[in-house]
């Protein structure tokens, strides 16, 4: 197999003398899900910001398809095909699904200055793209605000996929959701993967990460605790590592003592 779709090598990021990330290495292949796990303050958000071009790494290299790249600006990252779906979704609740889907890139007819949205096409494509992801929206005219949290995440994922994303970064898509809704989102992550996207799934919940992940990278206080393929790791091990290993072993005893 050729070079991974996106590869990070020894990435470090310092804010002044504060170390946010040190020597983080991971990669994602097309059609695979790489899960980045970490507790609060582990450096997950710095990691996202580096990939989405908001910040530049102090050290290390980022490669896409084997070529070294630098993202000086979010636009560059977006142009390279890296789409980030943030936790607080880029959605306008009172606007309809299809308008949200197309927001900022509406297909138009006519010629300037008399241009109008090709609503028929826009609605059809939106519905089609959503159903490709397995999302059954009753009516693309309904406002996004009336969708469930999971459905909203999936609209955002479908949108990113449609607009040419090769790598999809999902920032804690399940953290605000209930059990059932999280399951819905995980289903969509799989759907995105099956369409050939490389997905970077950032979460603190190993139970969400394990079923969909092909590769796991655990962050702890800015350090990588290692990269693992799925077959190298059992769910229990992942949970244990995620929880800080020995520290957590200690915790039940402390709690029971009281």
């Amino acid at each position: 197999m050729s070079a991974p779709l996106l590869e990070l090598e020894d990435i470090s990021k310092y804010y002044g003398n504060i170390i946010a990330l040190t020597d983080v290495t991971t990669s994602v292949n097309a059609g695979e899900v790489t899960c980045v796990l970490g507790d609060n303050g582990a450096g997950k958000s710095t990691f996202i910001k580096i990939l989405s071009g908001v910040h530049q790494p102090t050290d290390g290299t980022v490669r896409m398809n084997g070529d070294e790249v630098t993202f000086a600006h979010p636009r560059q990252s977006l142009d390279a095909g890296i789409a980030t779906v943030y936790q607080d979704l880029a959605m306008v609740p009172l606007m309809s699904v299809w308008r949200n889907f197309w927001m900022g890139a509406e297909p138009t007819k006519g010629r300037w200055p008399i241009q109008w949205i090709d609503t028929k096409k826009a609605k059809a494509i939106a519905k089609d793209e959503l159903s490709k992801m397995g999302i059954d929206i009753r009516d693309t005219e309904q406002p996004v605000g009336t969708l469930s949290g999971g459905e909203r995440q999936s609209v955002a994922i479908a949108r990113a996929a449609y607009f040419g994303a090769k790598v999809l970064i999902l920032d804690e898509p399940t953290s605000a959701l209930g059990v059932k809704q999280s399951g819905v989102v995980l289903k969509y992550i799989k759907a995105a993967r099956d369409r050939g996207l490389g997905v970077i799934f950032i979460t603190h919940n190993p139970h969400h990460a394990y079923p969909v992940g092909d590769r796991f990278m655990i962050l702890n206080r800015g350090r990588s605790m290692g990269n693992f393929a799925k077959d190298e790791l059992s769910r229990a091990e992942l949970v244990r590592m995620m929880a800080g290993g020995a520290e957590l072993d200690q915790l039940p005893h402390e709690l029971e003592d009281d």
Partner: peptide
């Protein structure tokens, strides 16, 4: 009325009014 209902600009109007940050994030 036509502009709001049928043009890009109309859609962006609703977008920046409804959630400006979101609109900005997706390139409005």
């Amino acid at each position: 009325v036509w502009m709001l209902a049928r043009t890009k600009f109309g859609g962006w109007t609703f977008a920046v009014g409804g959630n400006k940050e979101a609109a900005r994030q997706v390139g409005v």
